[in-house]
C-alpha cells in the first residue's frame, strides 16, 4: 500500500464526519431569524463592520514567517543526512546559518519585530 493512501482515507472520512457535525444544528435547531439577531456582536452599539485596514505588523510577521519557515525545512533535510555528510555538512550549515543570522540581525535593526 502506498504510504500516503491513509492520508487520503483520513481526509475523506474526516471531511464527511466534519460536514455532518457542522450541520447538526441546522437539522435540529430552531430557525427564527431576525434583523437584530443577524447583526455582528459589537457589545450592543450599531454594527460598524471590520472590512478595513489592519496593522501592517501582521503582514510583516507573515512574510518573516515564510522566510524562516523555509529555512527550517532546509535544516530538516540537512539534519536527516547529517551522519553521512560529516564535517563538510557542518561547515556548510554553519555558513547557511550565518547568512540567516545576518538577515535576522537586519530584521531586528530595522525594528520589524517591534510591537508596541
Amino acid at each position: 500500500m502506498h504510504p500516503y493512501l491513509p492520508v487520503l482515507i483520513v481526509l475523506a472520512v474526516a471531511l464527511v464526519i466534519g460536514l455532518v457535525m457542522s450541520f447538526l444544528s441546522a437539522f435540529f435547531g430552531p430557525k427564527v431569524p431576525s434583523a437584530v439577531k443577524q447583526e455582528v456582536f459589537e457589545c450592543g452599539v450599531p454594527e460598524l463592520g471590520s472590512r478595513e485596514r489592519m496593522s501592517v505588523r501582521f503582514y510583516l510577521t507573515a512574510i518573516l514567517f515564510i522566510l524562516f519557515d523555509i529555512e527550517t525545512v532546509f535544516l530538516y533535510l540537512w539534519a536527516r543526512t547529517f551522519k553521512s555528510l560529516g564535517w563538510f555538512g557542518i561547515v556548510e550549515i554553519f555558513v547557511f546559518v550565518a547568512i540567516l543570522v545576518a538577515g535576522y540581525v537586519y530584521v531586528l535593526k530595522r525594528k520589524a519585530l517591534e510591537w508596541e
Partner: peptide, 29 residues
Amino acid sequence: IFKEESVPGSAYRGFFHLAPLIGLIPTLL
C-alpha cells in the same frame, strides 16, 4: 446541537461555514 444556527447578515457565508472544518481536519490528520 439543539441551538439555532445564526449567521451574521454581513458575513461571507461560504467561508463562515468552511472555517470550522478547515480547523478540524488538520488536527484530525
